[in-house]
Design a protein around this nucleic acid. Sequence first.
DNA 1: GCCGACCTCCACACAACCTTCACGAGTCGT
DNA 2: ACGACTCGTGAAGGTTGTGTGGAGGTCGGC
Lengths: 225, 225
Amino acid sequence: MVEDERTINDALAQRLRAEGYTVEQAFDGPSAVEAAAAVRPDVVLLDVMLPGFDGLEVCRRIQAARPVPVLMLTARDDEADVLVGLGVGADDYLTKPFSMREVVARVSALLRRVERAAALAEERPATIEVGGVRLDPGSRRTTVDGEAVHLTPTEFDLLLCLARTPGQVLSRERLLREVWDWGDAWASASATRTVDSHVKALRSKVGAARIRTVHGVGYALEELR
Amino acid sequence: MVEDERTINDALAQRLRAEGYTVEQAFDGPSAVEAAAAVRPDVVLLDVMLPGFDGLEVCRRIQAARPVPVLMLTARDDEADVLVGLGVGADDYLTKPFSMREVVARVSALLRRVERAAALAEERPATIEVGGVRLDPGSRRTTVDGEAVHLTPTEFDLLLCLARTPGQVLSRERLLREVWDWGDAWASASATRTVDSHVKALRSKVGAARIRTVHGVGYALEELR
DNA sequence: GCCGACCTCCACACAACCTTCACGAGTCGT
DNA sequence: ACGACTCGTGAAGGTTGTGTGGAGGTCGGC
């Protein structure tokens, strides 16, 4: 969090901490660059107006050292400013005045996007195994108790998603968001039933007992062994 | 609870106490700051108009000492006021006139949010255990003295709610608000009997002795061991 | 253009679950 | 000890959620 005005900086930091994030605060350009190098943040909130050198310069320097998503905060809402901001590697921007809620929402969206990209980019050599079910994201092949099983693309993604958090219950909405690409869109009533269909197909292929239904909540992949 | 008008302060305090909260009252800015430092509250209700120095200043000083969620009470409902309020670190606000239930609902929501965030930050999606009863919110599974027990969704949420404050008595109204989503609907008196039904079901599943009835008040989960 | 693989959506049946009610037992103030 | 109130209990009725089979529909390969 880089913002020279103490009040705003503290307020935002506190709110974000309340949301469960860990926040490092900086109040001018130079110390921001230094802090970014030291703590290696997952995301940077950056005010455009700063003492020392301005936010755009900070953005450029931070990005030079290590690519990192940047959310720009700006008082001037003219397009030029926005474009320049994006030009130096900012991923999103907010014009003052903005509400707390808005900031939290943007940060959350940004992190989710980055997280997804990282998961995609970062080759996972690890084939995931949960109670006899083995998934290889690389080759997209599946075995159950050693025997090869053919899964359709959606089935594979769905099972993979469940397998990443064994035993944990995932809601249909969450699955729609992760497996399908429902960003922030609200799930339509009928779409959630699509999940059911694929779960049914999965059960017939990997064994019905492996996927647990939690009434009113969602599904979970059991370790089963 | 910081509010200079005695009548309002007392009324709100009384209502919140009826809900099971512990309330410390202050009637001006300086004593509010002092009290906040002394009792370390979980949440602060703060009137904007105060003798001494105003609510915003109080908010800033309290926050400076220790981050704490603040619910602002204000007579002026213009946006600027709201934004400034948020700027100093208030987490929510209410404009007068407001109803009792509204205040209670907001306080409850605020506490729930903070509690959840704290649990998240403390990297504890942990399974909570109270006297042999173990609850895992992630997998939504329950064991009693090591043995798996199936709970329905409402039963699980209800037990979880009780387990978060072991030994503490929670009113039916409070439970309805937290487990069910009674934001402001304050309708049928018979709905409170619904709680009874689920408590009965819970007792038969986790052992009758574990849930204590406090006549005229509510229920509590005993540690029992 | 035809076909197969796959996904989405729909409708029905059933199961799980929640709420409500009435009555009796228990508890509290007087 | 009495009445007023609160709570436990069992069962009935309604609501919601889920399993299932199958009907379209899209996409890409042949």
